[in-house]
Design a protein around this nucleic acid. Sequence first.
DNA 1: TTCTGTGCAAAAACTTTGCATGCAA
DNA 2: TTGCATGCAAAGTTTTTGCACAGAA
Lengths: 131, 131
Amino acid sequence: VTSQRLAILHVLRHSRGHLSPMEVYSRARRTAPGLTAPTVYRTLEFLADNGLAWPTSTGHGHLAYEIAQKNHHHLICRSCGGEIVVKPALLNHVYRKLESTSGYILRGNHVTFFGLCPKCQETGVRKGDPQ
Amino acid sequence: VTSQRLAILHVLRHSRGHLSPMEVYSRARRTAPGLTAPTVYRTLEFLADNGLAWPTSTGHGHLAYEIAQKNHHHLICRSCGGEIVVKPALLNHVYRKLESTSGYILRGNHVTFFGLCPKCQETGVRKGDPQ
DNA sequence: TTCTGTGCAAAAACTTTGCATGCAA
DNA sequence: TTGCATGCAAAGTTTTTGCACAGAA
């Protein structure tokens, strides 16, 4: 238990959504000036190993981290990146169905939905529009 | 329409899940030997801008891409990274509910669930175990 | 021909590793 | 005191940018 680890945990706790290691780094530096990048990487890995943080594994590519917490979900606007929180209860039925059909045990879920937020529907931005 | 773009599209089409730019690069090189990394980055961005590929935006951190297609979902094992496909119909009800409560229009969804696959339940791996 | 995409080169940013020091327990 | 976490330094990747050439239309 060191001041660096506490600073990094503090950053994760007070951030919504996930953070890349570098984002954690620059934020944590504000409260722990001497902090270095390698320490951030090693600490995030440590936190993940101990269940205090979750790597948002896209399966490929790079990692982002978020604080471990009850199942919760996000809805992200494909256009502006705006993010809102989705109530966990909405997915309870889906969870049960998924577990019974797949054999997986679901947990630590952080489901991300994508769409267009009301504001971007107005402005009609079409970047990455799949339709 | 160039051979490089076709090669990259081919890679995306024949891959399940998302790929990081570098993974796309090394795979596409097999069919397009002269291909360079900057071209891959620029092409992926181009494909995303034109709705042919979706960036898996984690909101922060780095990007991975996948081919644009009908809504579909993955269930990823937190331990071994194994990935299975989830039927879209399972989430129809959730979609309607989400749209009516949030004002977002959902589309281009690629929901990722996390859990423990049957094999890893046996071996009892506990890395990143949130319980 | 004209315009856009590509390759090459280089720079910038991100991530990892090794080792010696320092702090926590 | 003992051992692990940190800082520092350096190396290895990944990502971005600029510019001249080549290929598509």
